[in-house]
Design a protein around this nucleic acid. Sequence first.
DNA 1: TCAATCTGTTTGTCCGGACAATCTGACTAC
DNA 2: GTAGTCAGATTGTCCGGACAAACAGATTGA
Lengths: 245, 245
Amino acid sequence: MQLELSVDRSSPVPLYFQLSQQLEAAIEHGTLTPGSLLGNEIELAARLGLSRPTVRQAIQSLVDKGLLVRRRGVGTQVVHSQVKRPLELSSLYDDLEAAGQRPATKVLVNTLEPASAEVAAALGVAEDSDVHRVERLRLAHGEPMAYLCNFLPPGLIDLDTGQLEATGLYRLMRAAGITLHSARQSIGARAATPPEAERLAEETGAPLLTMQRVTFDDTGRAVEYGTHTYRPTRYSFEFQLLVRT
Amino acid sequence: MQLELSVDRSSPVPLYFQLSQQLEAAIEHGTLTPGSLLGNEIELAARLGLSRPTVRQAIQSLVDKGLLVRRRGVGTQVVHSQVKRPLELSSLYDDLEAAGQRPATKVLVNTLEPASAEVAAALGVAEDSDVHRVERLRLAHGEPMAYLCNFLPPGLIDLDTGQLEATGLYRLMRAAGITLHSARQSIGARAATPPEAERLAEETGAPLLTMQRVTFDDTGRAVEYGTHTYRPTRYSFEFQLLVRT
DNA sequence: TCAATCTGTTTGTCCGGACAATCTGACTAC
DNA sequence: GTAGTCAGATTGTCCGGACAAACAGATTGA
């Protein structure tokens, strides 16, 4: 294994992070082939002039990502399977853009209105208190793909219709300094009602994929509640997930 | 904060794990209320007679689970939101049992047959080589909930029809010493074909929720490929997910 | 020939310490 | 009164070392 590894001690980037990125790049690039041993931690530390805990921290982060597997008495191996992303909080806009689909968004509604009981419960605000309501149609290649209805608590973000049409909601929230932390999702299916069918250019009774989601920031506040419907012929949820250990 | 914490040094259970379990229990139980500070690491270590790295390792594991949030200069806080499980590799059988639904399974097919191109590609075996094929109907309260079709490479596990009816496939695999590592899933929806409708007691054209999954063990081998259809009126996919950092 | 045992390798756990980065809150200067 | 500055508190990073546990392969014994 002639893997070139080096760390820059003058950089503000943590050493373990520099190392883990280089290892990840090597795996991605194929320099480290699946199944190959990584060499033992102590020697690796000595080679790089690092301590073993630092090397372990780097390796551990890749184990958590599912790229490496440790075996006591054997060594650390690159996982065989084609792990891509261990399921992050996915954004339809980003998904489409990554797939080269040139997403477009049409904002249908962008108002402030009193929260229904359902919305109030999801967002943890008082019933009838004002919340943002945003309804959007997401298109790809001019064809409707999904109908997105979102509710946000007030005062968190400035919802500009122009920006909503230019990018995704998650990007706007991140840009507004909101740290997304976790989400509770529910994915199901049901038959399209007449208004839903019309919006998505489907027929009444056609199967629709539905997703409901409440997103929380790192302080535990609910920052978004969404009810989405997707055309199943155009979109499905794909993700990779890891077994918790 | 009068939180009772203690560790047993004579136990073979790692100290950091003992601590993290106690903290998790305290959070679950409500002894540690959301938003409350955990007390600084150094004092906590001194109080328990542990070193700071050990305490940090315990805390880190809970941060990874999404239960705690660290803030430099502030401290470690319990997250507000109702995080439950950060999405593990879910098993329909376990899900139903946890919901107190008394799942029942009817094995429709349990044979060895040549792999189709699709199955061979998913499992990474040669086309027309023998693979296990298992078709099951999963019921709850006597009502059909899902139709499960799975393919497994040969020689990995002994598929006994009786056992398949008594428990879930994942449990059997784990019991056979297979370490599940990751899975690639795809969730979609479509209209029921006549045979599908009949199996699930739905009408032709009714919306169905579909899930395809390839599961890998820790050596990177594909150990299972499944094509499942669910009745959306009876089942939906619920999960909590964390933003990767 | 086969099974049990031993041995070396590698990761797992744990320690104690050091300094840096960042946040909060109080203080000070204008 | 307001803005900038400073100090204390807390986590982030990193070091060097020690012993335990588990695995693979070779050795030994029946």
